[in-house]
Structures are given as C-alpha cells and as structure tokens.
Amino acid sequence: MIEAKKVVKRFGLKVILKGVDFHVKRGEFVVLVGPNGAGKTTFLRILATLSRANMGEIKIGGFHLPRDAASVRKILGVVSHQPLLYGDLTAEENLEFYARMYNLQNVSERVQEVLVLVGLQVRRKDLLREFSRGMQQRLAIGRAILHNPTLLLFDEPHSGLDQEAAAMLDNLLREVAAQGRTVVMTSHDLLRTPGLASRVDILSKGVIHVSLRGADLEPQKFPELYRSAVND
C-alpha cells in the first residue's frame, strides 16, 4: 500500500528526514513512534500530500507522489491532532461540506451514517466549537472516513484527550481498522501503542531504526526496546 524509499526532507539547512524507508502492506495497522522532533509529523504530512519530500521515492496505492497527488487524496483519510473542522458550522454541516469537497453522491445519507458510526447523531445540530476535545476528535475521524478511504493516516490523535476520551478513540480506531483499511498512526504514547498496532516502527533522528511485531510489542518488552533504539 505504501512504498517509501530514502525519503529526505529539509527545512532550510535543517535535515528532518535523513533517508526514511517505510513499507506498509494492505490492511496493516502500523504505528510510528519516536521522541518529539523525530520527524513523525513531517513524514506523515509528506504521505498525506501536504508537503513534498526533497529526495526519495514514494508510491501510495500504486500512485507516485507528488505526481499523482490528486489520485492519492481520493484513497486517503487524515486525522491530525487538530480536527480540521470549522467551529462555526454544526457537526452535520462540517461533514456535508467535506462530502461536497469529495464530490460524494447521496450526501445526507452518508453524513447520517458516519454520524451514527462516531456516536454524534444526537449532537449533529450543535456547533463544533461547543464540542469537547474528544467529541471533536471523533467527528474528525468521521470526516476522514466519509469518502471510504482505503488508507488512514493518524497524526497523534490522542494528544490533548483525557483517559476516557482516549479509550473511546481507541475503540473507534479499532472499529475503523477492522473494516479492512490500512492505518498508519504516529504517536509518542508507549503504553497505548502496542495494543493498537500490528507493527511498530521507531523513528528517531530522521531515520527508522527498527520495526517491531508480535512478542516485541508486549508491554514488558516494548518500552525497553524503544529506549535502546532511541538512545542508539
């Protein structure tokens, strides 16, 4: 689903990504972890077509970036730590707006379906700015899955959420992933990460140090492996 080879990104003289190799198969749930400033968000923004790599080769769903960015956007849903939604529109209006941007047919039906899925049907007529952070994040997931994307990118979706809202978000993430979608998520939450992912990649100082699966993701083992990779 994703093939990224030797991806380099610079901001001025500062090199953020120093040749990232990243491959994700269809249906995988991959979490990218790493300390602050490791380049997780930068890398995800490149995959999301919001930023361009200076060097390297990226293919998503068979489409080349940046050449086929518009085609990639059709199969892509993005949730960041910001909801990407308008405070002065209601939940329903926000989703209807994005449905039109994605040129969906049967807008009202699809919007109602998604509102039910994210558990906000009752609050559909309320303005987004009246929502709690957790509810905004649930609606953001609704926005991201509105057009039935095959690939979902989550950029630290738990940041700023309390325990209850984070647990609710985890359930929603599992539900969304269980529908056969490929998911890539960035996080620096070492406790939450192993429970969600089928694979965890550790990104530090602009490169991916190690990919962990199965037994390596057990709560006793994972933090230690993470620390040794980051301090390498």
Binding site: L50, A70, L84
Partner: peptide, 18 residues
C-alpha cells in the same frame, strides 16, 4: 485565519480536487 484555526486549511488541501 479562520482556515488556520483547527487546521482547516489542511482539510481543504486534502480534498481530491484541483
């Protein structure tokens, strides 16, 4: 500024439209 609040501008740019 309205587009920048809550990252809405990114939301617009993610739409698969010219």
């Amino acid at each position: 500024a309205i587009e920048k609040e809550r990252g809405c501008f990114d939301g617009l740019l993610l739409a698969p439209v010219d």
